[in-house]
Write a protein that binds this DNA or RNA. Structure first.
Length: 265
DNA sequence: TAACCTGTTCACGC
DNA sequence: GGCGTGAACAGGTT
């Protein structure tokens, strides 16, 4: 489930592996779905190039090539990357593979084919066309407040909208609203300034901590709601980490939502 | 087995 | 035109 912290962790991983190596080949098993541009155009765009830098906005990753163009990556709902040398180590569902002159490979793992690659020339124009607003780690309080004030939908849906703020996905939004003690069904435009401030602060805190822990939720504080989502732990509790009351699990804005009826009025 | 889940886009209604 | 809502996408997991 790559949200902002996972994508930032992938960015750092790629920085430590594939940067400054010549791309000599590439293969893809379903180009029409997985590539945003024609396959021959994509391959001619990356072949012979090296990656010399990177930029991340929300869940969007841009790898700077040595000819002033960018390799775009989006990890969809289940994407991952793995750097390896021996063909035997090729990970399962590596539907796209980059080959480098060092003999190493990068597998782009796409279990559900929601992942996307492209080559683009203008990052800002690309983000504008996709209506991606400022990244969670960059957005100012004034801009955040302006966005929340103008939207009438439930606050959970508004925070998930990448044109409001970029990088929030389903577990982060639940975590943020839990820590801010805001009910996820609250109408966004009805939030008072102090409530928006609580959400803003929780959002920055959660994302910064998740990046610091390399998106490994096992290492998140016990006070975090994420431990009640039931991922990984065989004896997980669906009780509130704060008041210990049973958590509500229901659809809000069409998405599965964990929250505490007692703590999030 | 069939329902569920994830991020994004798109169609639709207002 | 823009907002809000919900379906669709694909396939692994439960």
């Amino acid at each position: 489930m790559p949200e902002l912290p996972e994508v930032e962790t992938y960015r750092r991983y790629l920085e430590g592996t594939i940067f400054h190596q010549k791309i000599i080949d590439f293969e893809v098993d379903d180009p029409k779905k997985l590539l945003l541009i024609p396959q021959d155009e994509f391959i001619s765009g990356i072949k012979g190039r090296q990656i010399i830098g990177s930029k991340r906005v929300g869940k969007n990753l841009f790898l700077e090539l040595d000819n002033r163009t960018w390799l775009y990556m989006h990890f969809g709902m289940s994407g991952d990357v793995h750097y390896y040398k021996d063909t035997a180590d090729r990970p399962k569902h590596a539907r796209m593979v980059f080959y480098f002159d060092s003999g190493f490979k990068l597998g782009f793992i796409c279990p559900r084919k929601f992942e996307r690659l492209s080559v683009i020339s203008d990052v800002d124009a690309f983000l504008k066309k996709k209506k991606v607003n400022a990244d969670v780690t960059e957005i100012t309080f004034e801009e955040f407040k302006r966005q929340l004030n103008k939207r009438k939908s439930v606050v959970k849906s508004v925070l998930l909208d990448q044109s409001v703020v970029a990088g929030i996905g389903n577990w982060i939004v639940d975590e943020v609203l839990f820590q801010a003690k805001i009910n996820p069904s609250t109408k966004s435009h009805s939030l008072a300034d102090p409530e928006i401030q609580l959400i803003f602060d929780a959002m920055k805190n959660v994302v910064n901590l998740a990046i610091e822990k390399e998106a490994n939720y096992v290492h998140f504080p016990d006070s975090y709601l994420i431990h009640a989502r039931g991922w990984g732990k065989p004896d997980f509790e669906t009780t509130c980490p704060n008041c210990k009351q049973e958590l509500a699990v229901e659809k809000v804005g069409g998405r599965t939502t964990y929250y505490c009826l007692n703590c999030q009025k």
